[in-house]
Design a protein around this nucleic acid. Structure first.
Lengths: 172, 172
DNA sequence: GTCTTCATGTAAGCCGTTACATGATTAA
DNA sequence: TTAATCATGTAACGGCTTACATGAAGAC
């Protein structure tokens, strides 16, 4: 079976909290879901139109001062589709990890160390970034959603810490 | 910049150890790289032809009994390209994790538990699979390559163990 | 004899990225 | 006044998956 475009679910999810413009969804994703769900900017506006055509969202022109923008609200049909997706079987991510692919074919130890160093730098940056997000999130008022997101975030942090340890073991 | 097709590197890597037929590469990947590098079967044969046209590999007709097959050997140009790829900057994987996307938008605790249970079953299966591969790998004669692969594998196992622990914490 | 494995492909079509485009508003 | 941000898109195109095809050889 052909795999379905899942951009729609990311957008419907974003609309769950209230009406959003394409631009807001874009920047929201850039700040949050980007760490586990990357969307190209250009997919958002067309998908909002599609969702509107399907009756999953309704557009409304809104003004902020003189700035015009189009706010989309999720409909009951939209909520239903989102719920159906959440409850449907979740595919394991199709892993394509270039780092591991390189590692798999390497025999030279020097090359491995170089690869690890490069990776370590990137992973450590990610780790710092995650810790900042954690601090920000901790400052928000408590809610079930906050608890879930914090838990997910800390899992990500633990994974990164594990990898850092793993990488360092061979470099040092 | 447009992203490059990396199937070629997976294939060149497979050829490093010696001549292979498309079928052998296919089954090798199905047994090994599939865990971090998924290739659709249908990409392999055309890419071998392309590599041959580019002078990165040379085909040779080979017979096993009466069975005909086409064995490809890597050329110096092929090795050079592979080496250049290994030494080039490695992109971080483009993460698209449907599980985390769902989690991010969930507010209902019951839904979360259901999602975790589903995930746990899959991750535990992967874990068992990885442990089997580890046992097989441990049985092979020692070599630098074995050491590297075993290390990578155990990292994967540690990651899975971490996730299992993380998932269980909320289900139980 | 039939099933599995070996062996090698082609074609259709969605998906997603990159590059390209445009224009208003506001803050410095 | 100039840069940044807000705001919304289109077009091209390669990448990748899925489905579809074919056939021989050996195992049981």
């Amino acid at each position: 079976m052909r795999s379905v475009n899942k951009t729609r679910y990311a957008i419907l999810g974003a609309l769950l909290d209230g009406p959003c413009s394409g631009y807001e969804i874009k920047s929201l994703m850039g700040r949050s879901t980007v760490y586990f769900w990357r969307e190209s900017d250009s997919t958002i506006y067309p998908m909002l139109k599609v969702l509107a055509e399907e009756g999953k969202a309704v557009p409304n022109i809104d003004y902020v001062g003189k700035k015009k923008r189009e706010l989309f609200s999720i409909t009951e049909a939209g909520r239903a589709e989102f719920k159906a997706w959440v409850e449907s079987p979740t595919g394991l991510e199709t892993s394509r990890n270039e780092f591991l692919l390189k590692l798999f074919f390497i025999t030279d130890r020097g090359e491995m160390v170089r690869l690890f160093q490069e990776r370590l730098e990137k992973i450590e940056k990610s780790y710092e970034e995650y810790k900042k997000i954690e601090a920000r999130l901790e400052g928000l008022p408590d809610s079930p959603r906050k608890a879930i997101r914090l838990k997910a975030l800390r899992y990500g942090i633990a994974q990164l810490a594990l990898e850092i340890q793993w990488l360092r073991a061979d470099i040092l």
